[in-house]
Nucleic acid binder design. Sequence first.
DNA 1: ACCTGAACACCGTTCAAGT
DNA 2: ACCTGAACACCGTTCAAGT
Lengths: 196, 196
Amino acid sequence: VRTALALIDRDGVDGLTMRRFGAELGVDPMAVYYYVPNKSALFDGVVEAVHDEVDLDGIDPARGWRAVAADAVRRLRTVLRRHPNALPVLATRPVYSARLLDAGERVLTLVVDGGLGPREALDLVSCLRAFTVGHVLVELGGPVGGAAEGPGATAITGSRHPVLAAAVADGYDADQQYEIGLAALVEGFALTRGAA
Amino acid sequence: VRTALALIDRDGVDGLTMRRFGAELGVDPMAVYYYVPNKSALFDGVVEAVHDEVDLDGIDPARGWRAVAADAVRRLRTVLRRHPNALPVLATRPVYSARLLDAGERVLTLVVDGGLGPREALDLVSCLRAFTVGHVLVELGGPVGGAAEGPGATAITGSRHPVLAAAVADGYDADQQYEIGLAALVEGFALTRGAA
DNA sequence: ACCTGAACACCGTTCAAGT
DNA sequence: ACCTGAACACCGTTCAAGT
């Protein structure tokens, strides 16, 4: 599974091929099928492997649920950005393995220990997670300010897109925007669902 | 392009094949290449087609930027949910066509007319968009409360996942959770970046 | 200008066969 | 138990050829 992830990191999702995978392992391509039922299961393994990189240690519930939830999801973001090629797989494949369920429980427990009710914790973490995945998805898709690659790409023109141009005028920083959204989501949640 | 989207809606992303596409059009499979350079361009067309379904008419800036932004993104969500099979394509492919840029400008203009600065409008809409796409992505991936399909799927067990079990105890409603996150993001944005 | 069909270099997966 | 290799039914794309 580790080699599968490495292959995706290097060559993209389409670069992971049962044949290439076998070659990388120095083995007949079809030998893989003895250990893995099919390519789909291999992808599931990759999803788990990426999530395993998220380090939840050292998050202190005593700092309160806002800090806990924000930190947990920041760490997820860091890992996601480390594997840009694997992200489409992550975002697209729902995997309900015991390992992933355990990780979810762990995060929720931290947030609950930070002072939120179970239901509120789940809603908050789910929303933060959705925001994080979505944000990294567009960030890695290319800069919002145009400059996109490929044919058919169009740049922002001040005459045709005055508001967009004005918005992007003094730069565009994905990290900064992520923090803005993160803060808004957490504070807004406190406001509308608020506990302490 | 319309038939391409229909094919995806019916048979999934992998169901869209140049050969099948040609067949659906009642034409030699390879005739498609006269009109479209490659499959990638066809996908770009599909992304545009889906976005075109988002109806921005009748959103009244007079109701203020909060209502405008929330409504715009709710309408996006409705469209995304209408094309579950196309969503992975949407989420994954950045397309910077003139058409999509125009649509973005239009939304931003509405929000700015609703009383927000250009930069704030871009940050808010980007974050809302990321949240919306991410949320629909997990919603369509399957219910969070387990019940996932496929082998290796595990259910939540009260003993192993007490917090998760407690959180899901009285049901789980994706629409409701989306509205919670949406409200939190908008209100939190008002709080931290606030204009009127 | 528009379409055809053969061909090329790949896929994922199955399966009988080897050790 | 673990690996091989031929085979099957597909892919996307190119290209010479037809009308």
